[in-house]
């Protein structure tokens, strides 16, 4: 009897002890570690990449390339920016970056007075180097250290040549651009028109549009009304391709038209895959990101002084749509 009682109690103690230990392990083991503190004396270079179009395929690639390079250089890089071409927000981000006294700013060029003022005055005031990427703003106006990106004039030319190759030596071409043209767009336009001017049979129509979808649709309608015989469209601003196409397809078949654009828009890649876009200029966004970080670090470390102010050109090539046009 006594032995039974003792055995039962011992067993009970053992079982409860196991459960207690098991529970104690869960209660006292904190599987969450607080982030490690940074040594106070360790200050690495802080770089910011600022763009107007966050989370578009093109800029994601730029960011990816830049981040990879930053990791290699062991500096901190953050990608800031605005969504959907929100200029006000974009400028504010630049201002914050400058006030935050980062060590370098890599920025998508914006051909406006506010932007130029920021890069010229604020950046100079804080002594922060600015590199433009993808879209350039002339050095005289922005005092940028250098530019990394495609040669837009060459890109325009290349696209026009592709158009001529596919369409033949004659036809009417619509060039859709912004009302407020940026430097890079002007370069593209120059490239395209210069190239097409060599073919007497080809006439160009330049259409201007605002930023909103309605304005683009309106501009497209206007051009189609004015010039019903138009055969090809070149969207100088890649973001115009979507609404423009929608409007064309609302009126007629897309197929007969030759549609061309660039790759730095939100929708261009998918439209190309669907075969709606006949061809586009493919730039090298990863290379841009990489190169820009590399250059700014070289400048910060005084390895290459001064940087080539005319800019560092990255590769471009023509990519055709998945299904061949008419």
């Amino acid at each position: 009897m006594r032995k039974k009682v003792i055995i039962v109690l011992c067993f009970l103690c053992a079982v409860l002890g196991i459960f207690t230990l098991w529970s104690a392990e869960g209660a006292f083991r904190s599987d969450w570690q607080l982030p490690a503190a940074v040594p106070a004396d360790e200050e690495s270079y802080r770089l910011v990449l600022i763009t107007q179009e966050l989370e578009t395929p093109f800029w994601d690639k730029v960011g990816k390339g830049a981040t990879a390079q930053a990791e290699q250089e062991q500096v901190i890089l953050d990608v800031w920016g605005s969504y959907g071409n929100n200029r006000e927000d974009f400028l504010k981000q630049i201002e914050i970056a400058l006030h935050s006294k980062v060590d370098g700013v890599i920025v998508q060029g914006l051909d406006t007075e506010e932007f130029k003022e920021l890069t010229k005055e604020k950046a100079a005031f804080y002594g922060i180097p600015v590199i433009t990427v993808a879209n350039d703003v002339p050095v005289e106006e922005s005092l940028r250290k250098t530019f990394v990106g495609s040669d837009h004039y060459a890109a325009g030319k290349m696209l026009a040549e592709q158009l001529v190759k596919e369409m033949g030596g004659s036809g009417q071409v619509v060039l859709l651009g912004d009302i407020e043209q940026e430097y890079s767009q002007r370069q593209r336009l120059l490239g395209v028109t210069e190239s097409l001017a060599q073919h007497a049979e080809i006439s160009t129509v330049y259409a201007e549009s605002g930023k909103s979808d309605e304005e683009i649709v309106g501009a497209t309608q206007h051009v189609l009304n004015q010039h019903p015989n138009v055969e090809a469209f070149i969207a100088l601003n890649a973001n115009h391709v979507g609404p423009m196409m929608k409007e064309i397809s609302r009126r007629a078949e897309l197929e007969p038209y030759y549609l061309y654009s660039f790759d730095d828009g939100a929708e261009t890649a998918s439209l190309l895959d669907q075969g709606k876009l006949d061809a586009m200029i493919q730039q090298s966004p990863e290379q841009m990101g990489e190169q820009s970080v590399k250059l700014i670090m070289q400048w910060l470390r005084n390895e290459v002084v001064p940087l080539e102010s005319s800019g560092y050109i990255t590769d471009i090539r023509v990519v055709k749509g998945a299904e061949a046009g008419p």
Binding site: L34, P35, A36, A37, V38, E43, R46, I76, D78, I96, A97, H99, S100, K101, V102
Partner: peptide, 16 residues
């Protein structure tokens, strides 16, 4: 208060 997670943001903050 700086740590690995917020080093960049906090450094900017301080400079701001």
């Amino acid at each position: 208060l700086r740590n690995v997670e917020n080093e960049f943001a906090l450094t900017n903050y301080i400079h701001l």
